[in-house]
Amino acid sequence: MYAVFLSGGKQYRVKKNQVIHIEKLNCLTGSTVEFENILMISNKNKIEIGNPFLNGVKVKAFVENHGRSKKIKVIKFNRRKHYKKQQGHRQHFTSVKIIDINHIEK
């Protein structure tokens, strides 16, 4: 069983007990969070797709920690113009472990 949910403008495909890095959430480490914007759920041969979201489906997750990903370099460069600009960026993330995918049968 897996689900696809929306968080931070991105879509994530998750299964139970999976650990993922998502866009930073404003919640404490050690707390639980529920995602309600479920786009799709699959249970063996049965697939349900929302329009745009499914009702009665929630994904529960445990917040493990917060962190920052590796640094990327942003370089702007114009040749023959004496212009070069370098900048670094580290994106904040929240590491969550999927506890359960609650699905209410109709």
Rank of each mutant, 00 (worst) to 15 (best):
M1Q: 10
M1L: 09
M1V: 05
Y2W: 09
A3E: 03
A3S: 09
V4I: 15
F5H: 06
F5S: 02
L6V: 11
G9N: 05
K10T: 04
K10G: 07
Q11A: 14
Q11V: 02
R13E: 13
R13Q: 15
R13T: 02
V14L: 05
V14C: 02
K15N: 07
K15A: 08
K16W: 00
N17P: 06
I20Y: 06
I20D: 06
H21T: 00
I22S: 06
I22Q: 05
I22G: 10
E23S: 15
E23Y: 01
K24I: 07
L25I: 08
N26D: 13
N26I: 07
C27W: 07
C27F: 13
C27N: 15
C27V: 13
G30W: 00
S31E: 11
S31V: 00
S31Q: 10
T32D: 13
V33I: 15
E34T: 01
E34C: 07
E34G: 05
F35P: 03
E36D: 08
E36G: 11
E36L: 09
E36I: 09
N37E: 14
N37F: 05
I38S: 14
M40D: 05
M40Q: 11
I41W: 10
N43D: 12
K44V: 12
N45T: 13
K46T: 09
E48W: 06
E48D: 13
I49Y: 09
G50D: 04
N51I: 03
N51W: 05
P52W: 12
P52D: 15
P52I: 11
P52M: 10
F53G: 15
F53L: 14
F53H: 14
F53N: 15
F53D: 12
L54Q: 10
L54F: 05
N55R: 13
N55K: 14
G56A: 12
G56R: 09
V57M: 14
V57K: 14
V57S: 10
K58R: 13
K60L: 01
K60M: 09
K60T: 08
A61C: 01
A61K: 05
A61D: 04
F62H: 11
F62Y: 10
F62A: 05
F62K: 04
E64V: 00
N65E: 12
N65D: 07
H66I: 02
H66F: 00
R68V: 03
S69N: 14
K70P: 01
I72N: 11
K73E: 11
I75F: 14
I75Y: 10
I75S: 14
K76D: 14
F77V: 03
F77E: 12
N78C: 07
K81V: 06
K81L: 06
K81H: 09
K84F: 15
K85S: 08
K85M: 06
K85I: 03
Q86N: 15
Q86A: 15
Q86D: 14
H89N: 09
H89S: 05
H89P: 08
H89W: 07
R90Q: 10
Q91L: 02
Q91Y: 03
T94D: 01
V96A: 00
V96T: 03
V96G: 02
I99M: 12
I99T: 06
I101N: 04
N102Y: 05
N102L: 04
N102G: 08
N102T: 03
H103P: 05
I104S: 12
E105Q: 11
E105I: 06
K106D: 02
K106A: 10
